[in-house]
Design a protein around this nucleic acid. Structure first.
Length: 584
RNA sequence: GCACCCGUAGCUCAGUUGGAUAGAGCGCUGGCCUCCGAAGCCAGAGGUCACAGGUUCGAAUCCUGUCGGGUGCGCCA
C-alpha cells in the first residue's frame, strides 16, 4: 500500500460526501490536490492543500472548508491527529501502527516493493543510444545509454509496458565513408602500403578486422574495381560489424535493446515517399525559399527553392527541408517516416533520448509526429547533457581525429559498469556532469555510489552477525515478517521507516517526471538515515540493532535493517547496479 | 537576430510540477571508536534563490522584461 495514495482516496471520498451534502458543487477537479509529506516534519506525516484548492470554486473560505474536511478525516482509520494550519493546510498525523506495518509490507514484496500501477500497462517506446554504426562507442554515448535504460526500468516499475529500441543510422554519407575506410583496410590486408589514413576517413584500428574478413570471404576480386561495384558490399559488411561492436559495448554496460530498426530499410521500402505523400494530401509540404538566419549568415549560403514541411503550423520556428540539394531525403524526412512507423506499430507514446546537441531538433520532430498521427501520437524527448571526463579533477582531453577519444570499453574496464551507471545519474539529465575516474573508485562520503553501497553492505553485515550474537534467531524474510514491529518506536527508527515507505511514491513522481536521477538522490537519503541510525547505536547501546538479551526487540530491528537493505537493493536494481553484500 | 536550457551557501548541485521557517555534499570550526564495519556519525557557521515587475490565499518554481552564461540555428546525422 502506498500510504499517500491511500489517504488521497480517503480524501476524495470525503469530497464526494461533501458534494452530496451540498457543501461542494459537483464536478470539481481533484487534479491539483496534493497529498504529500510536508517539508517540515513538525507539521505531521501528511499534508494536503485540498481545502485551499476547492474553496475558491465553491466560494468558501479555505479555513471553513478545511474545518468540514478535517472533521470527517478525524474518523478515518489510521489518522491519529488532524490539524489546520496556515492559510488552510490540513495536516495529518498517522498512527505509528500504519508506518510500522510498512516494514512487513516491504519484506512481503521484496525487491518488487515500489511497483505501482501508475502506467496501467500502457505501451511505451523508448529509443536510446542510436549511435551511428561507424565505430565503437565512446564515453559520450554512455550517458544517453544509461539514462534511456534506467528510464525504461523506472517506467516498467511504474506499470508501463516498455519497448527498448535502437535506431540504426545505416543510411547517408557517413556509412559510405565507413565503407571507403574499410576498403582501404582491405587493400592494406592484401599487402598494399596505404600510408596515413586520409583526412575524412575513419582511422580506427577496428576496421582492420573488417578488411581481413572481406579478404577471407572474397579474396582480391574488389581490387581495382569501380567504387560503385564494391561500395554497397563493403557498406553492408562494415555497418553490420560495427553494429555488433556497439552491441558488445552495450552489453558491457548491461544494456540490451529489444528492437533494432534500420534507417536504410525505410529508404528501401519507400516508407519516406509514402509519408511525404500523406503530408502532401494534408497540404503540409510545399516548395519554398527559406530566409538565412539573421545575424549569422553562413558563407556558402545560396538562396534556393526547397521542398519543405510546414512545421511552423505546429509551433516550430521555421519550416524544415525534406530533401537535400542532390534530391535525396534528409535525415529529418527519414525520421518522420521512422516515428510514424513506431506509431503504426502500436506506440502512441514514444520517448527519444538524445544528446544536448540535438535540442534544436525537438520541435520539428514533435511537429511531424503530431502531423502524421493527427495528434494521436505523443513524442517526449529526454535531453542528455555533456559528460566531462576527469581524472583527479583534471579534464581528460579527447580528440576524435587523433583517435585518442576514450572508448566506453576503456572506462568500463577501468571503473566497472556499476560505477558508470550510477555516476551517469548523479545529475539531472539536462545538466552537464563531471565524471571523475578516480573519485568513483574512492571509498568515502564523496563518492555517492560507495556511500549507498556501504549502507547496503552494513545492513547485510548486521544480518550476518546475528548468527554469532544471537544464535538461533533466524533472519530470513519469512521469519522477520513475523517480527513485532510495534517495538520500533525510536524517533530515528520511525524516520527511516517513513523514508522507506516513500519509495513507491518516489517511483511514481520520478516516472511521471521521467527523471531517473531522482533514484540515486533518494537512495542517498536512505543511506544517510541508515548510517545515522547505525551510529546512534554507537552512542547509545540500547539503540543497537542486536540486543543480546532481547530477542524480540532484535528481531524487530533486524526487520527494519532488512527492509532498508531491500529498498536500497530495489533502487539499485532499477538503476541496473548490483547491490554489494560486503565492501571488502 | 531567433529558439531552447541555465543563474539557489565560498565550491559542486538537489528542491517532491505552486505550498508553510529554501536543503545536501565538499570545504571551514568543534565533538563521537574498549562498542553490530569510524570507509561512518553528530553539532555549528554560511542565503536579497541574478535583478525588476506581474498572476494569487501562497512564487526558487508560472508570466513579462532586463542583465549574465551555455547550446543550436537550409541541404551533416
Amino acid at each position: 500500500m502506498n500510504v499517500f495514495n491511500h489517504y488521497r482516496s480517503e480524501i476524495e471520498d470525503i469530497i464526494k460526501e461533501l458534494t452530496e451534502e451540498g457543501v461542494l458543487q459537483p464536478g470539481l477537479s481533484v487534479s491539483r490536490i496534493s497529498v504529500e509529506p510536508p517539508r517540515d516534519p513538525v507539521h505531521g506525516d501528511i499534508s494536503t492543500n485540498v481545502a485551499m484548492v476547492l474553496a475558491g470554486p465553491a466560494s468558501l473560505k479555505p479555513s471553513d472548508l478545511a474545518k468540514d474536511i478535517a472533521e470527517k478525516l478525524e474518523n478515518v482509520d489510521g489518522i491519529s491527529k488532524v490539524s489546520i494550519a496556515g492559510p488552510g493546510f490540513i495536516n495529518l498525523h498517522i498512527e505509528l501502527k500504519i508506518w510500522q506495518e510498512q516494514i512487513s509490507e516491504i519484506l512481503f514484496h521484496g525487491l518488487r516493493y515500489g511497483d505501482t500501477e501508475l502506467g496501467g500497462g500502457q505501451e511505451i517506446n523508448i529509443e536510446y543510444v542510436s549511435a551511428n554504426p561507424t565505430g565503437p562507442m565512446h564515453v559520450g554515448h554512455a550517458r544517453g545509454a544509461v539514462i534511456g535504460d534506467v528510464l525504461s526500468s523506472l517506467l516498467e516499475k511504474a506499470g508501463f509496458n516498455v519497448t527498448r529500441e535502437f535506431y540504426v543510422n545505416d543510411a547517408g554519407v557517413q556509412v559510405d565513408v565507413l565503407a571507403r575506410s574499410a576498403y582501404l583496410r582491405y587493400r592494406q590486408c592484401l599487402g598494399e602500403d596505404i600510408g596515413e589514413i586520409p583526412d575524412g576517413l575513419y582511422p580506427g584500428e577496428y576496421l582492420v578486422a573488417v578488411g581481413n574478413e572481406i579478404v577471407d570471404e572474397h579474396g582480391d576480386i574488389f581490387l581495382g574495381s569501380a567504387e560503385a561495384d564494391w561500395l554497397p558490399i563493403f557498406r553492408d559488411i562494415a555497418t553490420s560489424r560495427m553494429l555488433e561492436l556497439i552491441r558488445e559495448d552495450l552489453a558491457l554496460l548491461g544494456i540490451q535493446h529489444q528492437v533494432f530498426r534500420s534507417e536504410q530499410t525505410l529508404h528501401d521500402h519507400d516508407s519516406i515517399t509514402q509519408v511525404v505523400s500523406e503530408l502532401e494530401d494534408r497540404d503540409l509540404v510545399y516548395w519554398g525559399v527559406l530566409e538565412p538566419p539573421k545575424g549569422q549568415t553562413p558563407d556558402d549560403w545560396e538562396q534556393r527553392e526547397q521542398y519543405l514541411f510546414r512545421s511552423t503550423v505546429f509551433g516550430d520556428d521555421i519550416d524544415r527541408p525534406l530533401k537535400k540539394s542532390d534530391g535525396t531525403w534528409t535525415y529529418f524526412a527519414a525520421d518522420i517516416a521512422y516515428h510514424l512507423d513506431k506509431f503504426r506499430r502500436g506506440f502512441s507514446e514514444m520517448i527519444d533520448v538524445w544528446g544536448a546537441d540535438h535540442k534544436g531538433y525537438i520541435k520539428r520532430l514533435q511537429a511531424a509526429v503530431e502531423a502524421t498521427t493527427d495528434g494521436n501520437g505523443l513524442l517526449d524527448v529526454c535531453i542528455c547533457n555533456l559528460v566531462n571526463l576527469l581524472e583527479n579533477g583534471e579534464p581528460i582531453r579527447m580528440s576524435k581525429r587523433a583517435g585518442n577519444f576514450v572508448t566506453l570499453r576503456d572506462v568500463v574496464d577501468q571503473v566497472g559498469k556499476d560505477a558508470v551507471r550510477f555516476m551517469m545519474l548523479t545529475r539531472s539529465n539536462e545538466a552537464p556532469l563531471d565524471f571523475d575516474l578516480k573519485q568513483v573508485l574512492e571509498q568515502s562520503r564523496d563518492n555517492p555510489l560507495f556511500y549507498v553501497q556501504y549502507a547496503h553492505a552494513r545492513a547485510c553485515s548486521v544480518l550476518r552477525n546475528t548468527e554469532i550474537k544471537l544464535p538461533g534467531l533466524s533472519v530470513d524474510d519469512s521469519s522477520l515478517k513475523k517480527a513485532d514491529v510495534a517495538l520500533l518506536n525510536d524517533a530515528a527508527e520511525l524516520d527511516l521507516i517513513k523514508l522507506l515507505a516513500g519509495w513507491p511514491r518516489l517511483i511514481e513522481t520520478a516516472a511521471t517526471a521521467r527523471e531517473p536521477h531522482r533514484i540515486p538522490f533518494y537512495l542517498n537519503e536512505v543511506a544517510a538515515a541508515f548510517h545515522g541510525l547505525w551510529n546512534k547505536g554507537n552512542e547509545n547501546l540500547s539503540l543497537r540493532f542486536l540486543i543480546t538479551d532481547n530477542t524480540e526487540l532484535s528481531k524487530a530491528r533486524l526487520a527494519l535493517v532488512r527492509a532498508a537493505a531491500l529498498v536500497i537493493a530495489s533502487g539499485l536494481t532499477v538503476m541496473g547496479v548490483e547491490p554489494l553484500r560486503e565492501m571488502r
